[in-house]
Every structure is written in C-alpha cells, then in structure tokens.
C-alpha cells in the first residue's frame, strides 16, 4: 500500500462520524438533502450524496431528526429538522470532539505547551 492510500484510509476512519455531528448541528435550521450537502461541502466536510441521503433517513428513524414535505414550491422537497433529542446528542458529540481535540494536543509536545 502506498503512503497516500494509507493516509486516505486513516483519514476516512477519523472522519467517520463527523458528518452525523455536522448534520445534526446544521439542521437545527430546517434543510433538505441537497441544501445540506452544499452547506457541508462548503464548510469543508467531504461528504458524498450517496452517504448523506441514506444517513438522514437513518437519523430520522432513530428519532434524532424529523421531516416534513414542503410542497409550497414547484419542486416538493423533504425538509429535515433536528429534534430535541438529536440536539442533545449532537451537543454530547461536540463536547467529546472538543475533549479529544484537547487530549491529542496535550499528547503532541509541539503544541501541548500552549
């Protein structure tokens, strides 16, 4: 395996799960599939449509998102919104993220002293 392939494998491992936190955070304001995809890639999350769309339905099935069809416009769209439970989970996940970030910085002597 080349170094690039090794790195991309590890990056994928590391990024797994971040899309959930990001989606639950962004969808505190209602949004539909494609808009969320745009927002996330604009914010620097490398997420594929074919992962995101099924993920939204899974999060809905878990009760972390609710959805509603908006038929006011010419193109009917399914809008998702983070539920109270989803928000609570997202905030737990975010504080875990912060904790991990701090822990890793503490381990790295070049940044640990800051």
């Amino acid at each position: 395996m080349t170094l690039d392939a090794t790195l991309s494998g590890h990056l994928q491992e590391l990024r797994r799960g971040t899309v959930v936190v990001a989606s639950l955070t962004v969808l505190r304001e209602p949004g539909y599939g494609y808009s969320l995809l745009e927002t996330l890639s604009g914010a620097g999350f490398e997420v594929e449509a074919n992962t995101l769309y099924p993920l939204l339905r899974r999060l809905e099935a878990q009760g972390l998102l609710t959805s509603e069809w908006n038929t006011d416009e010419a193109r009917p769209r399914k809008f998702y919104r983070t539920t109270e439970q989803g928000d609570a989970i997202a905030s737990s996940l975010r504080s875990e993220w912060t904790r991990l970030d701090k822990a890793i910085n503490d381990l790295d002597p070049t940044t640990g002293s800051m």
């Binding site: 539909y32 599939g33 494609y34 745009e38 449509a49 769309y53 769209r77 399914k78």
Partner: peptide, 17 residues
C-alpha cells in the same frame, strides 16, 4: 414512494446546480 420523491428532488437539485 418516499425515497422515490426525495431521491428525484435531490437529483434534480444537483442537476440544476
């Protein structure tokens, strides 16, 4: 039925963009 509608809307959104 639900996935049908949603998937089409998503594809059309992406195509439009």
């Amino acid at each position: 039925a639900d996935i049908d509608r949603e998937l089409r809307a998503s594809i059309e959104d992406a195509v439009d963009a």
